[in-house]
Design a binder for these strands. Structure first.
Lengths: 247, 247
DNA sequence: TCGTGTGAACGATTTCACAGCC
DNA sequence: GGCTGTGAAATCGTTCACACGA
């Protein structure tokens, strides 16, 4: 950057690429582990090694938020972690509504990831009379109709069958939900301004079978034929591929 | 392309960008729905509208595999679907091992996505004596130690706590697994040639809170303050963002 | 000397725009 | 006339390489 009061304490209003945003939680997790282990400073090189990314990428990512580091030394681990936390909004409260109390919905309701970093499961919904009224993760499952007037969840999580996903999305949007995390195998239509992310397990598997099918151009259909697996390329094992929500 | 026997029936050996691969299962799903609804041909325009992508992107994606379409008409839906199926390896058998029979592992074992497109849950594993021997999705859970000599799963799915993920990955690799789908919040080290994809639910949520935190630059911490939600930008609701496995 | 911050090169992906075929 | 297939342009993201500060 050119002229900028680079006091290293300001969050900058600059536009942050989504690719960077997706890496921030990863850096944050690694920093937390290193802090636990007693680290006080950390270099882009070390963070890069642990995250399996390029060190220049780490530096560029952080530089988007200002100058946090000290040349010749590295980054103050605690300060850096705090900055990332703030950028990610981990210091706020983010109520979550989960719609669809099938196996996946119940698993998520009990998940750690949904009750840390400011996230809080605020409501569980379904439409099946056999499920509504039961208790999941210590919370009563309510009928989706009650979502209308109820809280205004920051994030709506959709774990219903594909055929019901759009209807659920509409309900969530009416209820004022700002972001939707969709596990159903459906592309959703939502008004501009609503953020939707997709996690589609089936797509993840199919992406993997695509690459596997290409490796062994044909045959050895399955589990026969031992022998050493040739270390083919196509993706080196060390570059963590962020799987986009299989959507 | 230039000189190429474009008979439209050959899968081409060309290199396919990962971005394209991730879209193929989506196209395939949409085509299947359209075929069910009686469609016989489909234009890139229509497919693009349903997938919420650019029509030129659809055409370019398909052109990587050859010339499937007919100018002035579009694509033969059934033929196109079959080509995609073949590219994705859906005509083969892909045995899957799921390691970690917690809530998420059990949910996945019961999931549709794991028993279609050639995928087949071939083994369920855990190390907890209270879980080993129980039955999940009609299949006995075995101890992870048995994975060693057992089948050679094409895909290993890791649904254990973060601290155990690397050990499980090592076991999967020794057992000859070619690809790993990791739900644990850990970056994995695997030999070159092993494909790893990450699904990290916590990262998905944090990406969403990042964008939400930026929208309302400060304050309204949470659920108070009704009023119409301003249709801010940051992501138009119509561009489906593939959420990379939250990893 | 070491490691950050960053312009500039590079690479990947998307989009445009249109020629060519049905 | 409509729609595919595809060069070329635009955009986005990554990596290099090195000047600068501690």
């Amino acid at each position: 950057m050119t002229a900028r009061p680079t006091n290293g304490r300001e969050t900058h209003p600059r536009r942050i690429p989504e690719a960077t945003v997706v890496r921030l939680p990863l850096y944050q997790r690694i920093l937390a582990e290193m802090l636990c282990a007693g680290a006080t400073t950390v270099s882009s090189e070390e963070l890069a090694a642990r995250a399996r990314v390029n060190a220049a990428k780490v530096r560029k990512d952080f530089s988007l938020f200002g100058s946090f580091g000290t040349r010749g030394t590295g980054y103050d681990a605690a300060f850096l972690a705090a900055q990332i936390d703030r950028a990610l909004g981990s210091d706020r409260d983010w109520p979550i509504a989960i719609v669809g109390m099938g196996n996946l919905g119940r698993a998520l309701a009990n998940s750690d990831g949904f009750s840390s970093h400011g996230f809080r499961v605020a409501g569980l919904y379904d439409v099946d009379p056999a499920i509504v009224g039961t208790s999941v993760a210590g919370m009563a499952v309510r009928h989706l109709d009650e979502l209308d007037a109820g809280e205004r969840p920051a994030i709506g999580v959709i774990t219903v069958p594909g055929g019901a996903a759009q209807t659920v999305a509409d309900v969530l949007v009416s209820a004022g939900t700002a972001s939707i995390l969709n596990f159903a195998p459906r592309v959703l239509s939502v008004p501009a301004g609503i953020l939707v992310r997709y996690v589609d397990l089936s797509i993840e598997l199919q992406v993997m079978s695509f690459f596997m099918a290409r490796r062994e151009p044909d045959l050895p259909p399955v589990g026969v034929e031992p022998g050493l697996r040739p270390a083919t390329r196509l993706r080196r094992g060390d570059e963590p591929t962020r799987a986009t929500p299989t959507g």
